[in-house]
Structure formats: structure tokens, C-alpha cells
Write a protein that binds this DNA or RNA. Structure first.
Lengths: 336, 336
DNA sequence: TTGTACGCGTTATCAC
DNA sequence: GTGATAACGCGTACAA
């Protein structure tokens, strides 16, 4: 069943049927109706491949999540939220989403080839690409529109991305602890090969400096965006007697809580803990986490809209969007 | 840059280039090498749409997650794990994954039309389709291979699916509580419009009956696969003094723990709690959850392999696969 | 072993 | 307002 068949049944040419389907002008109302009825009756839907061949458009956007470790190692709602935001915004403009997820066991090189050789997408969204990922070197040469989620580690000026102001957010988190009178404020970082992790560390240092507090390397633990890293980090930091911990992510903070619990350290009485992201675990943790909220769902939505703007030619040149963050005060820092 | 261009540069015909690309026989080693080199040098990759048009294959499998409520309302790693398993198995056979997620705000009807009219997939996987979903009535008429994750609510005989033996698993959970000497065993169900929820309830009843214990409707709370339902359910059940709760899902159990905590009911001393799934929160809950583990990642893998088997013509007719479950004993039930 | 020629189902560009 | 007809890029019988 194709255009030709419909045309024959309607007693018109295939051109006319095509025009009807694409809501093109120059079709009389009566023929348009007649053709529409036949299409409806036959449940006809044009062949996507044929259409893509000639229009060079597939109405599909590729989404790449290179590192999925968090999915396995933590109760992390970050990726699902991002996907939900992306999917929602893409569907609103009748695009579909082609998803590639990296594997822990897999070599990234292979994934990268799959992605960049797949000609069935009009544009691409990359989420949280680490600085050492092999895809990095290929980003600039790809012909299809690309939007990064989170600030790229390299070439940030030449790439479109949506992120948050992590430096400022890191400052906010640390300032909150300072305002509570904490003096020995530790920081457990996320991946430093992701700009987010780096920038939050920068914000932490800025805040200390601005407050005239010393920056003590003993109080900085280079971690990863995992609960396990938070756990190990807190175990390590306890010897240096921190009175507060700024965790680079909520999942990190969960590990911190657990290590503190095991060591008999009371949160927030002995040590204030602040997280980052405000993902679901922040509310269910005991005590509930004070944290910096970032709009994850919205990040996905905006990324989708940005790539669609590029695909549809509504924007040109790289664009950078920073979304606002917000301090959410709960129980883990004490009176706030 | 297309086949023709490569052919010209290599001094051969388009057909030969096509043969080389598709590893077809009847090409001399020397020409094959020469053509390969040119392809490599030009970084040529055949146009997917053109190829799909003639082969009627896209090497894309569609994955539909109709209801994503859990993503938003609970710290739920179920979907990510499923997606990871699917993605992994699909990629292993060089297929890509087209993902549709339902929206809380959206009408399912629209999503359904999008999915069933999208001609760019060779097969489809549906995850946890509820009995009342509008897609139900269209499942049997769809021409492309379909695999359901979890037993379909209707027409289970005519559809391929991968699931677990939820009845037996429900029995196992309940039997464990019985073996611990519990007498007033309550059950908070998941969605009863999902077969899984229903079957686990059935297993619960079976186990009680087999043990000669009464089935008390007051001790059965019809919930949903949400933490909130677990919370509400436990609040409600407390008046009937249960000494154990079988939660239809781990996220439900998390809500149970919270409600118990707030009511001053000690877990497991006063009430044993057993969950279902063994998703991440089971290990991080306090106390750690005793639960029935189901192989979520593997469910995704198997579903992918099943749909690929159908697409590639390796199997015919509907197939049903049940994966094994396992009792995981932790802290929330007491000595076990 | 290699090349020719046709068809896949659609859109776009013409003529009418 | 409508209908031929030429692409789009590839796979593949069939001929050479």
C-alpha cells in the first residue's frame, strides 16, 4: 500500500495524494477530503524511509549517554529524568528519540563509531561526556547539529550546550555551610573529568576564599559521582575532623551519610552535609538532604529544543544556555 | 558522496562497491581491497534511508515504556536497568534503539498513534503495558514483531513476552514470612492492572492457604508500584495490627518503612517487611530490605534477543520466557 | 568476476 | 488545481 495505490483509489495522481498528506496548497477542498477519507479508510501511512531518502530528514534525534555507571551503582534518577525531559520535548514536535547508552563493559570507541555512522538522525544530544572520552575528538567534525548536556570539557565555545552555573552553585552550597558557622568544610568532588565536577570544586574554593577561610587540601577528596565514592571519601575525611561536607552530588552525599552513620558521627549535629542535584534520594535520605537543586527535567527539555532549533534552521551558530539552580534547605545541615 | 562516487574513484561499478560493503561474495580480493581503501579514505558510509527503502529493514528496534510514573515518583532503578539490558543486547547485534516514553501529562492515545505509525522500526518491545492502556487493542493487528516485557494482561497466549513467575515468587515471599512464624501477614499490592501485581497477590493467597492461614481482606491493601502507595498502605494497615508485610515492590516497601518509622513501629522487631525486585533501594534502605530478586537487566536482554530472533526470522510464533527469581535475605524480616 | 538496469516509495519541478 | 516525470541512493536479478 503506497501513494500510488491511494491515488488510484481516489482517482487522482500520486502527486495530489502527496500534497494532501503534506498539507501542501493547491488542492481543491473536495479532492482533499476525498483523498483524506481513502487514507483514513486504508489506514495508510507514508513510508518513512522513502520520505527520508528524498527529504534528507528522518524526524529522529539521537541521544547519547556515554557513561551509565550511575545507573548501576546508585539509585539515581538523574538519567531517567533527563530522558523524560528530552522525550517530552522531542515528541511535542513530532520527533522520535534514538537512544544509545554506553556500557561499563564496552569500549567507548565502538559506541562512538555506531553513533557517528548512523545516518538516521537529524541531530544529536550528548549527555555528560567526560573529558577523556574518545568521542571528544570527533565532536567538531560531525555534520549534524549537536547539543551537549553539561558544559563540554573542550571547545566549549564552539559547541552548543545546556548546563547550570556550577561555579556559582558550588559557591552557594559552601556559603550556606559558612553561614551556619561551619569552619572546617570538606568537599567530596564528582568526576573531575566532567566540567560540572570541576566547576563545583572551583565554587567551593571561591566561597572559602571570599569568606577568608583557608583552603585545606586535606579536606578535599577527589571522588566520582557515586555513592561508593561518597562513602570512601567520608571514611577518609573523618580523620581530619570536618564539621561540614559539601558533596558534589546527592548520591555522593548518601554515601557520606552512611559512612557517618557507621562511624557514629551525627548528621547534622556533628557534621553538616549538603548535596547537589536534588534528585529523589535527597528527600528520602535520613536525615533529608539539604541540597542544590538543578532542573534536570528541564535540562532535557531545553537540550531537545535547542537541537530542534538547529535542525529546523531556527538558530545558527553555537548557543549556550545556563539554567538556574536553587538552594533547598532540609535537615542535613542543621538549623538553616 | 555515494556508492557511485566511490565506484568512480575505484574504477569499478556501483554494484561492486555495494558487494564490498555488504561482504557479498564474487569480488576478487584485489578489487575488494582497493574499494575498501577508498571507502576508508573517504570515510564513506552508505545512506541508511536508501538502504532501508530497498531492504525494508532499518536495524532499529522500538522500545515503548507507556507509563513512566515511577521515574518521577520514586528512586527507581527498574527502568534504567531494563533500558540498559535492552540497549546492550540490541547493540550487540548492531541494532539501534528508538525509545518512546509515556508522559504523565500526555494522553496515551497520542503516543500510541506515534508508535504504531512510525515505520522506522523492524520490531517493538513494550514494557509493562497496563491492562487499561489504549494500545492493548492494537497489539494483535500490528504487523511488526512485538515482544512484551511482563505478561500481557490480555491475549497472553498470542503474544511473545518475557517475565518471571510472579505467582511462585509471591508464594516464596509469603512463605518466608510464614516460616519466620508470622501470623498476620499483610500484602500491599502493586498495580492490579499489571499482571505482575495481580499474580503476586495470587501467590500471597496461595501461600497463606497452603499454610492453613486465613485470608483476611483487611490485610490486603490495593496499591500501586509507588512509594507513596506503600506509605499510605502501611498507614492504613497499622490499625489491623499486622506482624508482617509483603510489599508488591521495593519502592512500595520503602514507603512501608517510612510509615512504620513515623508510627514508632520497629522493623523487623514488630513487623517483618519483604519487598520485591531487589532494585537498588533495597540495599540502601534502613534496615536493608529482604526481597525477591528479579533479573531486570536480563529481562531487557532477553526481550531484545527475542524480538531480534523474530525480526531475523530465527523464530516463529509467539514465545514466552519466564526468568528465575531468588529470595534475598537481609535485615527487614528478622532472623531468617 | 564484473557491470547493466530496474525498482523501492516518496518529494520536487515542471508543464498543463 | 492537477498530473507526468525526474531525482534520492541503494540492492539485486540478470546479462556479459
Amino acid at each position: 500500500m503506497n501513494l500510488e495505490d491511494i491515488a488510484r483509489k481516489a482517482g487522482v495522481s500520486r502527486s495530489t495524494v502527496s500534497r494532501v498528506i503534506n498539507d501542501a496548497p493547491n488542492v481543491s477542498a473536495t479532492t482533499r477530503d476525498r483523498v483524506r477519507q481513502i487514507i483514513e479508510a486504508e489506514k495508510f501511512h507514508p513510508n518513512a524511509a522513502a520520505r527520508a531518502l528524498v527529504t534528507r530528514r528522518t524526524d529522529v534525534i539521537g541521544v547519547v549517554i556515554p557513561s551509565v555507571e550511575n545507573i548501576f551503582f546508585t539509585d539515581n534518577s538523574y538519567w531517567p529524568m533527563l530522558l523524560a525531559g528530552l522525550g517530552q520535548a522531542l515528541r511535542a514536535e513530532d520527533y522520535a528519540m534514538l537512544l544509545w547508552m554506553g556500557e561499563v563493559t564496552d569500549n567507548d570507541e565502538r559506541l562512538m563509531r555506531k553513533v557517528s555512522n548512523h545516518h538516521m538522525v537529524d541531530g544529536l544530544v550528548f549527555a555528560s561526556l567526560t573529558g577523556d572520552h574518545p568521542m571528544q575528538s570527533h565532536l567538531l567534525e560531525m555534520r549534524s547539529p549537536i547539543v551537549m548536556i553539561d558544559k563540554p570539557y573542550y571547545n566549549a565555545d564552539c559547541l552548543s550546550y545546556v548546563s547550570i552555573d556550577n561555579v556559582r552553585a558550588g559557591e552557594m552550597a559552601t556559603e550556606h555551610l559558612i553561614k551556619l558557622g561551619r569552619k572546617r568544610i570538606a568537599h567530596i568532588t564528582g568526576h573531575l573529568t566532567i566540567t560540572d565536577g570541576n566547576d563545583r570544586l572551583q565554587g567551593y574554593k571561591n566561597a572559602l576564599r571570599n569568606a577568608g577561610l583557608p583552603i585545606d587540601d586535606n579536606l578535599i577528596y577527589e571522588g566520582l559521582f557515586h555513592r561508593d565514592a561518597g562513602y570512601a571519601g567520608m571514611k577518609h575525611l573523618l580523620q581530619f575532623k570536618p564539621d561540614a561536607v559539601f558533596a558534589g552530588g546527592d548520591t555522593i552525599a548518601i554515601g557520606v551519610l552512611q559512612a557517618a552513620h557507621e562511624a557514629g558521627v551525627r548528621i547534622p549535629d556533628d557534621v553538616s552535609v549538603i548535596g547537589f542535584d536534588d534528585i529523589d534520594v535527597a528527600r528520602t535520605a535520613i536525615p533529608q538532604l539539604t541540597t542544590i537543586r538543578q532542573p534536570v527535567l528541564r535540562k532535557g527539555e531545553v537540550a531537545a529544543r535547542m537541537v530542534l532549533d538547529m535542525v529546523e534552521g531556527r538558530t545558527q551558530g553555537p548557543q549556550q544556555v545556563l539554567l538556574p539552580t536553587e538552594l533547598v534547605i532540609r535537615k542535613s545541615c542543621g538549623a538553616g
